[in-house]
């Protein structure tokens, strides 16, 4: 009897997993076909590449003492560009459920053989995919810009006297000691590994904004209002780090606090230093709490609510 019960439970769980996977695929299809997600990808691409190109021109045209290595250029333009994309993703998160309510498509979907929890999970998974896609877009765009040495232009290096370098792509090399160019501080593989780990960590704070948006979109049935409030909350939290005296404590509530911290550590990695990732743990932890609490409350509220649209 117990075997039969556990077998039946197993079959139900497998069925639930299948339905969630199917729904996630549907949600991804919907996301891609909607205007906002492609727009977010394009904006991310433009902002990241724009920042990279601006930094390049800055070092080349002004002869500034601030020099960017191509690793730094990659990390800085992607890291700071993502702070703009995080706002767009927060809006996307806020629209995920509220647009279904506003358009009343929630009625059409939920009157089918799917559980609400499966539908909510599918929404969350599709947003996770969207977040990873945006972070990857920023990383890739910045990698291309940072690694390109155009014709008749100076290469970029953190060294004070960079050796001339031919045009090409990609130009990511081992990091060497500025005093002793033959001494390798960190291999290209090591630096790339650390930076890619940093990008993976960046997904967490970006996802925190998305989750908060998702929560608001679940609570507020009007998509316009949900997006407006989500953007407002996002900006307010960002502003907390500018409050004198409380900066040290409230600053942690801002989404870009961990993003800035991770970006700084990635910049260090780009210079061949082994980054102290535990420095970013508090910020990433707070972001993870945002994600956990927001999603838990969203799913609970959504599963218990009467749909009376």
């Amino acid at each position: 009897m117990t075997d039969a019960n556990s077998h039946s439970r197993g079959r139900r769980s497998l069925g639930s997993l299948r339905r969630t996977a199917r729904l996630t695929w549907v949600e991804i299809r919907k996301l891609v076909s909607h205007k906002l997600f492609p727009a977010a990808v394009i904006i991310t691409l433009l902002v990241t590449a724009g920042l990279g190109l601006a930094a390049k021109n800055f070092t080349e045209s002004t002869g500034s003492t601030v020099r960017f290595s191509n690793y730094s250029l990659w990390v800085a333009s992607a890291g700071y560009g993502l702070q703009v994309s995080a706002l767009l993703l927060t809006a996307l998160g806020a629209m995920a459920m509220s647009s279904e309510a506003t358009g009343r498509t929630l009625n059409t979907i939920l009157a089918r053989p799917v559980r609400r929890v499966e539908f909510a999970l599918a929404k969350i998974l599709s947003l996770l995919v969207a977040t990873i896609a945006i972070v990857a877009t920023a990383a890739l765009a910045a990698w291309v810009v940072g690694g390109t040495v155009p014709e008749r232009r100076q290469p970029f290096s953190h060294r004070s006297e960079p050796p001339p370098r031919p045009a090409g792509f990609p130009t990511y090399d081992d990091v060497t000691d500025p005093q002793y160019p033959d001494t390798v501080i960190a291999t290209r593989g090591e630096v790339m590994g650390e930076i890619l780990f940093g990008f993976a960590l960046l997904v967490v704070p970006v996802l925190a904004g998305v989750s908060l948006g998702f929560l608001l979109g679940t609570l507020i049935e009007s998509s316009g209002l949900a997006v407006g409030i989500a953007v407002g909350v996002f900006m307010t939290l960002e502003a907390t780090k500018f409050i004198p005296m409380f900066e040290e404590y409230l600053g942690h509530l801002a989404f870009n606090y961990p993003m800035t911290r991770i970006t700084t550590l990635m910049l260090e990695a780009g210079k061949g230093t082994v980054p102290q990732w535990h420095d970013a743990l508090v910020g990433v932890g707070i972001s993870a709490i945002y994600v956990g609490v927001s999603l838990l409350v969203s799913v609970t509220v959504f599963c218990r609510r009467d749909i009376t649209l």
Partner: peptide
Amino acid sequence: AFYRHLTGRSNLSLLAQV
């Protein structure tokens, strides 16, 4: 209620998948 930016057919195939 349907997804307005999709065709009728796409809506149906989406709902069939759901």
